[in-house]
Structures are given as structure tokens and as C-alpha cells.
């Protein structure tokens, strides 16, 4: 492949949205209220829409006849580059919202930069996505505040979720070799520069939600190198089920 770095860079972004969209899709029909159910599905649909644009572009770059679905569903686990955060399970609504919030704040900052990319395709996708993600961030931040400053039980549950997921936040700002090369070309976003703004914003919301900011300095990483948590295999088993069971068919 001629532009392997760009291809991998796009997958890194797209896989985050794919895996998070898949996780949210699991909840459809199982939310705490009808209204919340519909809202979470909207976020899932936004993310999967973004995913399709990215993979279609990636398929064009690969130029080897693979389609968006081949890229989305026919890679091995080690070839998915999403961060560990987005693959974490829907343990309860607190985890779902905490995961969403911790990702949305990053996602919004990243897209704001990606919109300035010299790659017109990526810039256009970012421009469209940013409005969707801006809403996601609002939605998840509001829920963090409701749960944090709600009942004793909800406060404790959302604090636990934030504490548990915190360990996956640092990875958002890591760069792979492909990332570095693409940043140098003016196409990619230098995520290392987003870190301060990220924690500032996250901490402000947590404070408003009467939650404490986890102090742990131990972080997990690996997703960007394709080394995932144990949850990932099961998620992919679902995602890939049809494509693996019935290879080379159209649906």
C-alpha cells in the first residue's frame, strides 16, 4: 500500500467510533427510560455514520478491492487500533455515561483540530462530525452531573465508574509511528497537545458533578498497538459473526 501511514491513521480514528458505536448499539431496547434509550441510539447512529465515511476513504486509499465492511469486520483483533476506553463494557448506565463523557471530551478536541487538516476528505468528515460530537459531549456531561449530584447511590456508582475508566484516559494522547508521520505531514492531529485542555475540561465537569478527580498515576495502554483488553474478542465475535460465518457474500 502506497499510503500505509495515512491508512493506519484513519483506522485509528475510525475504530474508536466503530467500537463505541457497537457498544452503544448493544443497549438499544435496554435503557433506563425510553427517552434515554432513543438518545443513546442516536449517538450510536452518529458514530457509525462517521465510521462509514472514514472506512470508505480508507478503502479508497488501500485500493485493493476491500470495501468499508471488509475493513470494519474482517480484521483480526490485533489489527484494530481503537483505544482501550471505548471497548469497555456497559457495566451499568454509570459506566456507559462515564465512558461516553471521557471519550466525548477528547473526541471533540481532536475533531476541532482535524477540521484544519490539509487532507480535504478528513477535514470534511471532521467538519460534519464535530456538530454531532458537540451534542454527545453535552448529553454525557449533563448525565455526569445528574448522576454525581443526584442520590447517594448514583454518586457512588458514577464515581466508581470514573475511577475505573480513568486508567484508560492517558492512552488517548499517545502517538503511534504512523500518527507521528501523518502529523508531520500536516494531515494528522498532534494529540499530545490536547492533553491539558482535556483534563481541564474533564475536571471542571467532575467538580460541578461533586465528584473527585481520580489521583491515580497508573495508566493502561495498548489499544493503539492492537493489544486490547479481554472484552474486545467478544465484541468482535458479535461484530464479525455474519462476515466470518458466511464469507464472501453480499447482504
Amino acid at each position: 500500500m502506497k499510503n500505509k501511514n495515512l491508512y493506519n491513521y484513519i483506522l485509528g480514528i475510525a475504530d474508536n467510533s466503530l467500537i463505541l458505536g457497537q457498544r452503544l448499539g448493544e443497549l438499544c431496547g435496554h435503557g433506563p427510560s425510553l427517552e434515554t434509550d432513543i438518545a443513546c441510539t442516536n449517538m450510536s447512529l452518529d458514530l457509525l455514520g462517521q465510521v462509514r465515511s472514514y472506512y470508505q476513504y480508507a478503502a479508497k486509499i488501500a485500493g485493493d478491492g476491500r470495501t468499508e465492511d471488509d475493513i470494519a469486520m474482517l480484521r483480526k483483533e490485533r489489527e484494530y487500533f481503537n483505544v482501550l476506553l471505548v471497548e469497555q463494557p456497559n457495566t451499568d448506565f454509570g459506566y456507559t455515561m462515564a465512558r461516553q463523557f471521557l471519550f466525548d471530551v477528547y473526541h471533540f478536541l481532536m475533531l476541532t483540530e482535524l477540521e484544519k487538516s490539509t487532507d480535504l476528505n478528513l477535514s470534511a468528515i471532521a467538519k460534519k462530525s464535530i456538530k454531532e460530537v458537540s451534542y454527545h459531549k453535552r448529553f454525557s456531561s449533563d448525565w455526569i452531573k445528574r448522576l454525581g449530584d443526584g442520590t447517594e447511590e448514583s454518586h457512588s456508582r458514577i464515581q466508581t465508574a470514573i475511577n475505573d475508566l480513568w486508567t484508560y484516559t492517558d492512552e488517548l494522547f499517545h502517538q503511534t509511528e504512523a500518527d507521528k508521520a501523518i502529523v508531520a505531514e500536516g494531515v494528522g492531529v498532534d494529540v499530545t497537545k490536547l492533553k491539558d485542555a482535556y483534563y481541564e475540561e474533564v475536571n471542571a465537569v467532575l467538580e460541578e458533578a461533586t465528584l473527585s478527580v481520580p489521583q491515580s498515576k497508573y495508566f493502561q495502554k495498548g489499544g493503539k498497538q492492537g493489544i486490547h483488553t479481554e472484552h474486545m474478542g467478544y465484541l468482535l465475535a458479535d461484530l464479525q459473526y455474519m462476515q466470518r460465518t458466511y464469507p464472501n457474500m453480499e447482504w
Binding site: 438499544c28 442516536n42 457509525l48 455514520g49
Partner: peptide, 18 residues
């Protein structure tokens, strides 16, 4: 929903169930 065979089918099914 989680096992839809393509992305196009997945979003259509999600939208329908929603």
C-alpha cells in the same frame, strides 16, 4: 444489532428499532 452483516444494515436496523 450487534451482529448485522454490514454497516449499512447495522445503521438501518438501529434506526428501525429506535
Amino acid at each position: 444489532i450487534t451482529r448485522a452483516p454490514s454497516l449499512r444494515r447495522k445503521v438501518a436496523l438501529l434506526a428501525k428499532v429506535q
